[in-house]
Design a protein around this nucleic acid. Structure first.
Lengths: 212, 212
DNA sequence: TGCAAATTGTTGCAAGTGCAACAAAACAAA
DNA sequence: TTTGTTTTGTTGCACTTGCAACAATTTGCA
């Protein structure tokens, strides 16, 4: 994952934040910070800590849209987080740098570190596009089985390894795949019985070929 | 949809393309241009015409991933189109500007029009992220009915209008929603019979509240 | 204009999935 | 450790969906 301050020294970072008219804010763990970042065309950088973007659907179910880690960005300039069904909360004590997107883009003065910043921002956007496309690739499979296999293939992408580690719980995986948890559990059992996979907690061994 | 040459005059555009070491190429309609754009970290601009990015799945079914129109971009810098299951074809006579992403980003000289270009590129990336997120929002609904309603709501987003126009055929819509076409057709009939919608070709009238 | 191709609507059937409910297991906190 | 909470596995049942096959309609092209 690309870092918004890649190739920018600590000294340059201070100058950069000054140039971009940044406001730093601290938040305690488990705070709803929606109001602080929703009201304009913001670009927010997580300087330290962890932020979650949640969505509440019509039935009241909250799902995690995304987790934003250190040196990653979020904000209205990317998501439609203005929508009232989105909530932004801190999962740890968190330090956030709030920028105004228009201000950032309209700077006349563009030192080298500014250019690095913009390049990093582009790379982060590309990461997000790739992530979204990956998820779409998984979601466009019609059956739970195919979704699972597509997802497992993503995790072992490139690597020849047949061992993968789920980055979250099975409950969350069902959410990510947009399927019923117990139906997914049933399908995992089927895959296990058929000898295609072996499950040990979040560690899964794959016994099938990539092109399946 | 943002335009890669927004706020850039014709004169500036010529200078810009020169600065970025652009190569222009013409292609006839219905040509597979995969080989021409896959081999490096490219950023391709469709100067005129229309390009489709297709994906062939394990069963040999081809689906349209995206259509790239005039003044829009595609390339390895965004998609993993290197993967052999992706194909890029022209749907009309098409003029493409091929840039090397690294060259573009490492320019020392940065005239105003270059900065506009980068800002436009960022805006285009944001558009893509929004598009992807919209599709994910639709795809994460579990039933065909909910997918349809979520999609219709997207189309009437903001607008109070209860009349929407599908941007593609029902066959393609089924593809977009990742559901079986005839099952979708059945569900559309249900919605029609229940009086929630009215269908006239690609024009659909909605008779239900937004928050449904 | 007329023909071929593509799109749409419909249906029966089998298979897959969502849902609810519950027990077992794993995890976390006191 | 004990206790309470969350996650996981399982199952029956109803309902949804995918699939295949076909007719009707629309579209596009020669």
């Amino acid at each position: 994952m690309n870092n918004i301050f890649e190739n920018i020294s600590e000294k340059e970072k201070i100058k950069l934040l000054n140039l971009l008219e940044a406001h730093e804010t601290f938040f305690k763990k488990d705070k709803d910070i929606s109001v602080n970042v929703k009201d304009m065309d913001t670009l927010c950088i997580v300087e330290s800590g962890l932020v979650q973007i949640l969505k509440t659907d019509v039935n009241g179910n909250r799902t995690i849209i995304e987790e934003i880690e250190e040196n990653q960005v979020f904000g209205n300039s990317i998501y439609n987080i203005m929508d009232s069904d989105y909530t932004i909360i801190t999962k740890e004590d968190t330090e956030i740098i709030v920028l105004d997107y228009k201000t950032v883009m309209s700077k006349e003065e563009r030192p080298v570190y500014y250019n690095h910043f913009i390049k990093n921002l582009l790379d982060i956007y590309k990461d997000k596009i790739r992530q979204c496309n990956d998820r779409i690739t998984v979601l466009t499979n019609k059956s739970i089985r195919d979704k699972l296999l597509a997802y497992f293939n993503l995790l072992r992408k490139g690597a020849k390894t047949t061992i993968i580690y789920l980055p979250f719980s099975f409950t969350d995986l069902a959410d990510y795949l947009a399927v019923n948890r117990s139906a997914m559990s049933r399908e995992l059992t089927n895959l296990r019985v058929e000898g295609l996979i072996e499950i040990q907690g979040r560690k899964i061994k794959l016994y099938y070929d990539k092109e399946r």
